Computed example of a mutant assay.
Amino acid sequence: MAQFLFARFWSGLMTLFCVAVIVFIIVRVIPGDAAMMLTGAGAGVVSEQELEAVRERLGINQPLPVQFVAWVGDFVRFDLGTSIRTGAPVADEIAARFPYTLQIAVMAMVIAVVLGVPAGVLAARFTGSWIDRLLQTLSVAGLAAPSFWVGLLIILSLVTFFRWSAPLFWEPFWVSPIQSITQLIWPAIAAGLRQLALIARMTRSIMLEVLGEDYIRTARAKGLSEARVIFRHGLTNGSLPIVTLIGFEFAALFGSLIITETVFNVPGLGQYVITAIMNRDYPAAQAVVLLLAGIVVIGNLLVDLIYGWLDPRMRLKGKPS
């Protein structure tokens, strides 16, 4: 078990390091000058000496390897730096915005699980029927539809039929839970549609396999109700791959929220990182992208650990299949 844990931890650490290198390079090859953005003036208005002074103050006039080592060193000490655009600590701005992103992710996954698992079970129970074909068609449509496109359709429908308008102030969950859920339910639906379709298709495939096992036929021969056979014996024994998928998708969901939050104008991490990239705010963009990557890596690590705990064969192999 110790070897399994070490292998997973080392793999996650190397993944984060690679992400850090890629993010650091990408945000600096994007056309634009952070010093020029900060001064708010165009070329020729501010002298080159003034721009160089701004670059020196920001530390972006040093060689890239030096900048990278300094950034990694600060990050290891949990110092995310100061936003070039606002002058506020990046950690404080992330702390203020992360609850909105987390709430949308949780609500989206709850919607996906609550609707996706029963849909998959229903499709497997009535395989080949019109119910199965309808649910499969809807799941394929859910996988094919991009979340930003679904979000735009939701906004258009709300504005057209219900005269809906985006909130001027997004209420935090701990201040007004009902109002916060009401405000964020629409981006959660747009973001969770793909996960719903994936969970429904996975559940259907697993249940089709499980319902053909001998112990299911034995349970039916004993006179157990169909609901007890399906949920107590079928779904329980086939839940491991479904739980694994839910864990992976929940971690990956944070990355897909960047566009969804921008579409709905939610003041979460997604909108924050888009603004940071557009304004060449290097510390903010790097911190948010690395944080989202860290969430994915930690989520996958936890899923691997749960898998290894539930299935001892994975611990012996050292990696899940």
Score class of each variant (00 low, 15 high):
Ala105Gln: 01
Phe6Gly: 02
Gly120Lys: 10
Ile22Glu: 13
Arg313Glu: 14
Ser180Trp: 13
Gly308His: 12
Ile306Val: 11
Ile111Ser: 01
Phe24Tyr: 12
Glu249Gln: 14
Ile25Met: 14
Gly270Val: 12
Ala7Gln: 08
Asp74Ile: 01
Val121Lys: 05
Ile60Asn: 11
Leu156Tyr: 04
Thr82Asn: 13
Pro146His: 09
Ala53Leu: 06
Gln3Asp: 13
Arg201Gln: 00
Ala197Asn: 08
Asn279Pro: 10
Leu134Cys: 09
Val263Cys: 13
Arg163Gly: 01
Glu50Phe: 08
Arg228Phe: 10
Leu153Asp: 09
Gly294Leu: 00
Val297Asp: 05
Gln286Tyr: 09
Val273Leu: 05
Leu211Gly: 01
Glu213Asn: 11
Tyr100Thr: 14
Gly40Leu: 05
Trp174His: 05
Ile216His: 01
Arg228Lys: 13
Thr203Asn: 06
Ala91Val: 04
Ala200His: 04
Gln271Pro: 12
Val72Glu: 00
Phe24Pro: 03
Glu50Ala: 15
Leu16Tyr: 05
Gly299Trp: 00
Glu56Leu: 05
Leu156Gly: 02
Leu156Gln: 09
Trp149Val: 15
Ala108Lys: 00
Pro177Asn: 12
Gly308Tyr: 10
Leu290Trp: 06
Ala251Arg: 00
Cys18Ser: 12
Val21Glu: 01
Ala252Pro: 00
Asp79Pro: 01
Leu38Ala: 13
Gln195Glu: 10
Phe68Ser: 06
Val243Trp: 00
Leu291Ser: 07
Phe17Asn: 04
Asp33Gln: 14
Gly294Tyr: 00
Leu269Cys: 13
Gly12Cys: 06
Val121Ile: 15
Gly40His: 11
Leu292Val: 08
Ala188His: 09
Pro99His: 02
Glu209Tyr: 02
Glu213Met: 03
Ile178Glu: 08
Thr82His: 06
Phe24Val: 02
Arg133Ile: 11
